[in-house]
Write a protein that binds this DNA or RNA. Structure first.
Lengths: 137, 137
DNA sequence: TTTTAATTTGTAATTATTACAAAATTGAAA
DNA sequence: TTTCAATTTTGTAATAATTACAAATTAAAA
């Protein structure tokens, strides 16, 4: 994603841009496999030597609150993050541990209510073996 | 669930029964709102004064491995557990924090493969406001 | 009973995340 | 440009769920 696009996205959602915020958001948007906080840190640390993990946590929290990102709770021990342009499904491969985006439609996502409960968020997580790992058997 | 049913369930799935294992499994099966480890501990501690949290963690791990329970990753900071007789959806209320089971059918649950990936587990989490909290507005 | 194996327990270690306050940076006003 | 206030970033320390591990207990087998 172009620098300008990230900048505009932040502005549009009322998040004051900064070098750190732009880099963090950009890395998540670019990297499709939903990097962990550690991965984000390791990668960006090369560019921004003074970067702190606390900044990453702070930024991610803001970006979620402003609905730019969504938390993915597919891993047991850490949170992942998702830039969701359109609603989609997540598939985690048990073997290689990658998290794929799947854009198959699910009628559930159009429901506003279910058994009387008002739905505000949809999280669909599938777990199994991805096509790359599967063929190695 | 009757004592004997829990016992048979454990035996059938090749888990050696014990007082602790039966009580833990029974509590999860009986309590429909998916108690946390802390809640399980607090409740069963009254019955089994010597109970240790480590035993609960050990037992839950075994029960998951033997496919008697499934992990629910709907909470950000702790794991919940589910006794899944038939596949269903989970709905978490943001307001009262209860986790409901919803038995509406979703065609996704019949898919064995998606975009070439082999599916082994289905986790569908909806988040919003439940019907009890909603009407208080 | 004696012995062996499995389970339970308590403590200490691990690890992701948060709280907090100092340092650095930004942006506007003078 | 300089000054000053507000915001952001950073590092350290605290928190809390989970796990590792070994001793104690219990159950099963001989």
């Amino acid at each position: 994603m172009k620098k300008e696009k990230v900048l505009n996205l932040l502005k549009r959602k009322n998040v004051k841009p900064s070098v750190q915020r732009m880099e963090i958001l950009n890395y998540i948007v670019e990297n499709k496999n939903h990097p962990s906080v550690d991965e984000i840190y390791s990668h960006l640390n090369k560019k921004i030597a003074t970067l702190s993990k606390t900044t990453i946590y702070n930024t991610l929290k803001i970006l979620c609150k402003k609905n730019i990102l969504t938390e993915i709770l597919i891993e047991e021990d850490e949170v992942r993050f998702d830039y969701m342009e359109k609603p989609h499904i997540h598939f985690k491969c048990k073997s290689c541990n990658k998290i794929y985006d799947v854009f198959k439609k699910c009628p559930l996502i159009n429901c506003k209510k279910i058994e009387g409960h008002k739905i505000e968020e949809y999280h669909i997580y599938l777990i199994g073996t991805c096509k790359n790992c599967y063929k190695d058997d």
